[in-house]
């Protein structure tokens, strides 16, 4: 049996954490994610089978597109819920809080940054939805 630190859910946590936070998630956050999956998704015995979660795990390069697509479709997809859980446990950890609190100094270029994120988000949603359609979903 795999050790908890190397369990499929812990690997899932690291994958999602790296993608969302742009850094390796703290061990405590990985543990919290695993606990959260058990409490919220009935995954005490390990991850459920879910085509989108499985695809994201097998091909992490597709995760940005899948993230865009499931965000557009709403909170019913397990992948969306897992992404939100990862954000929640990271935000509730001092190791990553800074990524969720705004800065101490005004930074110029807010509008430019907002436009870039909007564009990137829109693009991902478009490509992601095309991908889902190609998968017949």
């Amino acid at each position: 049996m795999s050790s908890p630190a190397d369990s499929p859910l812990a690997r899932q946590a690291r994958l999602l954490g790296r993608y969302l936070l742009l850094e390796e998630p703290a061990d405590s956050v990985v543990d919290a994610y695993v606990e959260g999956c058990a409490a919220l998704f009935d995954e005490a015995e390990g991850p459920r089978t879910d085509p989108l979660v499985d695809l994201a795990t097998r091909r992490p390069a597709l995760l940005p597109l899948l993230d865009g697509a499931v965000a557009w479709r709403g909170a019913d997809e397990l992948l969306r819920r897992k992404i939100l859980l990862m954000l929640a446990v990271a935000e509730a950890s001092p190791a990553h809080t800074a990524a969720f609190l705004d800065g101490t100094q005004p930074e110029p270029g807010t509008l430019r940054r907002v436009a870039i994120e909007l564009l990137a988000g829109g693009l991902k949603a478009g490509l992601g939805l095309t991908l889902l359609r190609a998968m017949g979903r």
Binding site: A71, W72, A75, I83, F100, V114, E117, L118, G121
Partner: peptide
């Protein structure tokens, strides 16, 4: 982020702004 229609990674940065 949960209320956003955009990918969570971009939404986090966007909403922070």
């Amino acid at each position: 982020v949960r209320e956003s229609f955009l990918a969570a990674r971009e939404s986090r940065k966007l909403l922070l702004e």
